[in-house]
């Protein structure tokens, strides 16, 4: 069962990058599978910061590889809030 966070992150990626929902699964690599590049990642982080109200540190950004990594980072933040 998908968490609310996972659903919302998927929606944001689908909307922002015009992807098919079925292609945006937790195991997908942002760069290799979804074919995003560094500019896209920066804009995705910007959208997520707007959505969840926190700031991604640069060291956090470098540890994001998959859709699942983003969801994990956000869920950790939300649990500590």
């Amino acid at each position: 069962m998908q968490s609310d966070t996972a659903k919302r992150v998927q929606e944001i990626i689908v909307e922002q990058f015009e992807k098919k929902p079925e292609d945006v699964t937790v195991d997908k690599s942002l760069l290799d599978d979804l074919e995003l590049d560094s500019l896209d990642i920066f804009d995705l982080i910007c959208a997520l910061e707007d959505e969840y109200g926190f700031h991604f540190e640069r060291e956090m950004e470098s540890s994001i590889n998959t859709v699942g990594d983003i969801i994990t980072q956000i869920e950790v933040y939300l649990s500590q809030k």
């Binding site: 500019l39 804009d43 910007c46």
Partner: peptide, 10 residues
Amino acid sequence: FGRQNATAFL
């Protein structure tokens, strides 16, 4: 500048 898109300047 906290939440500005990276693509704006371009």
